[in-house]
């Protein structure tokens, strides 16, 4: 998942997750990266390629969002890097 939606408040993120699940979109709640938005502690990962449909759905369900970003967290590398770190000890 290489997209991220930032929000003004965490209950918007929770609502968005529910709406997207019902709409058949996969998503994942993560701590909000402050470098993308200072506003809220929780953000929602999703498939960036589907952003058009996702934005439309959230607007239709009156879910407030702050912004939509292309974002691939470095933490996706975590398991790979962790293995490397372990090997190099």
């Amino acid at each position: 998942m290489d997209g991220l939606i930032s929000f003004f408040a965490s209950h918007h993120a929770i609502r968005a997750e529910t709406v997207m699940k019902r709409g058949g979109f996969s998503s994942q709640l993560i701590p909000g990266p402050k470098e993308l938005s200072p506003n809220c502690g929780v953000a929602l990962r999703f498939d960036y390629a589907r952003r058009g449909d996702v934005v439309e759905l959230l607007a239709a369900k009156k879910v407030r969002i702050d912004g939509v970003h292309f974002y691939r967290p470095r933490t996706d590398d975590w398991h790979v890097r962790q293995a490397e770190c372990n090997e190099s000890r």
Binding site: D2, G3, P33, E35, L36, Y48, R51, G67, V68, H69, F70, Y71, R72, R74, D77, W78, R81, Q82, E84, C85
Partner: peptide
């Protein structure tokens, strides 16, 4: 910390 020190590929920006 060891993971962070090795520096991972960053891809980010506004969509």
């Amino acid at each position: 910390s060891a993971w962070a020190a090795k520096g991972a590929m960053v891809s980010g920006g506004d969509g």
